[in-house]
Design a protein around this nucleic acid. Structure first.
Lengths: 134, 134
DNA sequence: CTACAACTTAAAGTCGACTTTAGGTCAAGC
DNA sequence: GCTTGACCTAAAGTCGACTTTAAGTTGTAG
């Protein structure tokens, strides 16, 4: 497939694909003249990259998970990320509950409501600093 | 409290507090000469802002939730965000399961493993475009 | 009363993830 | 064989969320 096909199939712009290649996340299988050609398997890789982005991984982190030799993954990093995701999911769940409560609680000042405060305290536990990256 | 006290108590830098004030997220209660003074309640607000950031809200979105008049919240926006969070949590759960599986699955090529693909397909459902913002 | 550490402002800089631009190449259809 | 639209590269621009810098002001300890 050429870059336009990949772009259409993945929903990414050609410029993004070139950028990902430059960062070492994907590879084109060859060229026709100047033009990149891709193996359809690149689509799976792009889907995985997309998912990674959605859970707050940086492109560099994703790059470290997708080992250079083909379509594979660094297990240790993966296990660490799984644990991190567990925490993040727990926080999000608590925050969700907090927002839900705030949206329906009749108290005039939500930040003062004890239920809300309890939920937020729960959510705040073990949140690592944002580091500007997610 | 002065800005250094708030900074210490919240873990944010004074520059961040001034930036948040400039964006209308917090307010200082007055000045001693040039120097800002804050009501301790600002800490609750900052904690909420921090939580919001952690679930991928932009400062502008957070600003819209924290209504100007004191420490309150826009319910409609909140309910919408709750629903969005539900989807996001579901995806993260699926992705977590996918990563967990990939980390332990013996298949040589994870992207080709049917279990992995099923989980990822699940995770990908209804993921809205990243819009460069989370 | 003076020194100075801690505050102040406005403006510029940074970082990640792209996008846009400017200028160039080329495969394919007419 | 020539046009042209899709591709190419390198470099600069953008956006959000801050941080840093430069230059100035001031509350407070000595």
């Amino acid at each position: 497939m050429d870059i336009a096909d990949v772009a259409k199939a993945s929903g990414l712009k050609p410029s993004t694909l070139r950028y990902y290649e430059q960062k070492g996340l994907i590879r084109s299988t060859g060229r026709h003249g100047l033009r990149r050609y891709y193996d359809p398997s690149v689509l799976e890789k792009l889907a995985l990259i997309n998912l990674g982005r959605h859970v707050g991984l940086s492109l560099d982190e994703i790059g470290r998970m997708l080992l250079p030799q083909g379509v594979d993954i660094d297990r240790a990093l993966l296990i660490a990320k799984t644990a991190e995701l567990d925490k993040q999911i727990a926080s999000m769940q608590a925050i969700r509950d907090g927002l839900h409560h705030a949206a329906h609680c009749p108290a005039p000042n939500h930040l003062a409501c004890p239920t809300f405060q309890r939920l937020m305290k729960l959510a705040g536990k073990r949140l690592k600093p944002l580091s500007h990256k997610i």
